[in-house]
């Protein structure tokens, strides 16, 4: 058991020595690995932030019913009575005066409203069905639009759904991008280890002649791959973190101009750990492949 530990300690020392032995190569490899990991994770952070932006909205599934402009009190009462008959919906009436007042309160709208000769807004109902499945909502919206004096029915969840579809595509492209970069990372490690095996062929040959097992010879290379991957992961986290830090303030300012309260976030501790773990796994994989292929000639 102690021998086992000493052998592992030797392998770690070897791996560290090899990392330190050619600082320029190490730095170049770390830049490549760091960038390859940073790009997809930056994309992930952006998507995660966007999802946060819609979280508040996505739960609310509303149908807005807009009356024609010339609709009178009688027409409104008719819709009200029909809505009362419709089961499992909450609804409220927004009169055209109320809508105008709300709009005036919105950022930058007051001046525009003031310049209008008369209130252009119609009376409206906002309906919140209990059953929010897409088919139910669409069927309801369709039946509402057939009601008298209804000008337009809008399914307010539509933009959320469109946005979520966009996020899904974003996620999918990101996954594809990430797999490409994962392949690149494995290739980088593969090649680094290949060069190391070439550089140390004398040592490997001697070690085998004096009784080193294949495991003993492989070990420092695997540790090297894992270590380089871990450092690359941390470097990627640093890149993403500083990017998020630099963008956070201007972004929050921009979003506050739209009257939204939103603070963008970077990578969490879990994210950093995950990025490092991905680096370790891919580095290890590259090392295993390289060692399996390039140590064969010493047999």
């Amino acid at each position: 058991m102690r021998q086992f530990l000493h052998q592992h300690a030797t392998a770690w020392r070897d791996a560290l020595r090899r990392l330190g032995a050619s600082p320029l190569n190490t730095i170049l490899s770390l830049i490549v690995i760091g960038t390859a990991l940073a790009l997809p994770s930056a994309g992930w952070v952006v998507l995660d932030n966007l999802r946060g932006l819609t979280d508040g909205a996505s739960g609310v599934q509303q149908i807005s019913i807009f009356m024609v402009a010339e609709a009178g009190k009688k027409d409104v009462a008719e819709i009200e009575s029909r809505l009362r008959e419709t089961k499992a919906v909450n609804w409220r009436f927004v009169s055209r005066e109320e809508a105008l007042k709300r709009l005036q309160a919105s950022e930058g709208m007051a001046e525009i409203i003031a310049s209008l000769p008369r209130n252009p807004l119609p009376d409206a109902f906002i309906v919140e069905p209990a059953d929010t499945r897409a088919e139910t909502l669409e069927a309801m919206a369709k039946s509402f639009s057939a009601w008298p004096k209804v000008a337009h029915v809008q399914l307010d969840s539509a933009w959320v759904r469109r946005f979520n579809a966009f996020l899904r595509i974003g996620k999918l492209s990101l996954t594809l991008l990430a797999s490409l970069f994962a392949g690149a990372l494995v290739a980088v490690t593969f090649n680094t280890i290949r060069l190391q095996i070439l550089a140390q062929s004398a040592e490997i040959e001697v070690a085998k002649l004096i009784g080193a097992t294949n495991t003993f010879i492989r070990r420092p290379f695997l540790y090297f791959g894992a270590l380089q991957g871990a450092l690359g992961g941390l470097f990627a986290a640093l890149l993403v973190g500083s990017g998020a830090y630099l963008l956070a303030e201007p972004l929050a300012e921009l979003i506050s101009l739209y009257g939204q309260d939103f603070s963008p976030h970077g990578l969490s501790a879990v994210g950093v750990a995950a990025l490092t773990a991905v680096g370790v796994t891919l580095g290890w994989l590259g090392a295993i492949l390289s060692v399996a292929i390039h140590l064969r000639r010493f047999d």
Partner: peptide
């Protein structure tokens, strides 16, 4: 030291 590292002897 190399042969001793191979058998995992304490440093």
């Amino acid at each position: 030291l190399l042969p001793l590292a191979i058998i995992g002897l304490a440093p």
